[in-house]
Design a protein around this nucleic acid. Sequence first.
DNA 1: CGACACGTTGATGTTAGTCAACTTTGGTGG
DNA 2: CCACCAAAGTTGACTAACATCAACGTGTCG
Lengths: 256, 256
Amino acid sequence: MGHVRCSAAGDLLWHRGRAPGTGRPMSYCDSCAVRNRAICAALEPAELAALNGIGRRRTLEAGESLIWEGEDSILVANVIEGILKLSTGTEDGREQIVGVVYPSDFIGRPFGATTRHSVTALTDARVCVFARADFDRFAGEHPALEHKLLQRTLVELDRTRGWMLLLARKSAEEKIATFLLEMSAHLGEPGCESDGRPLDRFDLPFSRQQIGDILGLTIETVSRQLTKLKRDGVIDLPTRRAVEICDRATLELYAG
Amino acid sequence: MGHVRCSAAGDLLWHRGRAPGTGRPMSYCDSCAVRNRAICAALEPAELAALNGIGRRRTLEAGESLIWEGEDSILVANVIEGILKLSTGTEDGREQIVGVVYPSDFIGRPFGATTRHSVTALTDARVCVFARADFDRFAGEHPALEHKLLQRTLVELDRTRGWMLLLARKSAEEKIATFLLEMSAHLGEPGCESDGRPLDRFDLPFSRQQIGDILGLTIETVSRQLTKLKRDGVIDLPTRRAVEICDRATLELYAG
DNA sequence: CGACACGTTGATGTTAGTCAACTTTGGTGG
DNA sequence: CCACCAAAGTTGACTAACATCAACGTGTCG
């Protein structure tokens, strides 16, 4: 229940074997759900095999953390399945989610000594982890991989900066509306239970508290604004986690 | 007056000539103030000469924009001297500064079709601009340059995410205190009129309005909080733009 | 069935925004 | 040099938005 399924693949092959028609050992990568969308897509088969050699699969349960804020940067990873959050907090306990990560996204801090934010699974998740030192070395030898990573990082920086405008300047109502549209778009992307068009009905991978932590609002304000949108007939909330966008045009208007 | 001087160099050589002891044409780069700190530092002399061939110097007056939000990404650049802001806004005129850029920083959006934020000079500035297409091609052929750019982008992403916590969760007082400490640290860095230690006395390169746009506050709130810090004896405000940190420990406490 | 986490709703308080008047500063030209 | 002006900054009174505190559902699981 409640768990969001977020992967393009049905069942994956979890055994090693021979890739059909080739002599080389078959790697996990051949059957990877995010093979063509993650940064690995930059690599030739032989390089991919080498990368596979230094990585390993790992599963995370919802709520489990992979990386902790302020610690040495030990791990980096690709997300194969699931949704994770990046978060920081103040000493006195205020938390802020600074990023949300979906399948095919890259996580961790390569080329840096420490990690500036925690990484925690919001749903059950599967990731492909590398020791940072191994990854750094490998990346240094494979410019195409670094190029992909650079592109991704630039996109992420743009998105993050866009989010600053929302945090600093938008009202609670605008924040919630923007958030719902964003979720609709993102969960509609390939790899997330869908065909690429924005969804009008979806399950949120977040609790009210987490929505608050993303938008810089309290749980009560989130609840009130959602209720208000529902009263206005713009959305419906069939269950706690489910959202249906009834009037997208108006919702976009509310988003400011 | 009021212009902040922000460059390591005194006078630069602005004429071309022969680099002493070499046969190749002397490039601007040889005398560039940020030669060793900008991403160009990754390049060998011959490569640097090639890069120099596709770039050109440009000066900007305070207030002048180099790049506009939403436009095609035509230019990228290195900052040689001066301070610039990156900003976005909503349709109804609310503005948010999403980044501040100092000498040796890189600006613009390589490998992408459009620019998501404007770049405007806050002080008189000097930059080294490249046509994006030229830069993209050059970067593709020089992995060391891309590596430097990747590192810088990762650092910038970390900093930006840290700033989200401030925007979303900190009070006006904490924002102002954090901001002053940040400015003290940044203006104390090499390249900005200093020796590398945080400054206890400096001129802000920002108007009250711009401080508000950075912190997500109104001009009145900025003014009130600064006045309050002054009343508390934590800082002094000798002139409009000047700040003196009298009690750094307390200021850090206020910063939360 | 009962416990518990999660979510909603209401009453009240605080913070920062808004509107408006006023002051200071720096620049310009008589 | 000084008077004047526009722009920037400050201060005060009031308001709106969101947080806080508290009580009250609701769905889930043992």
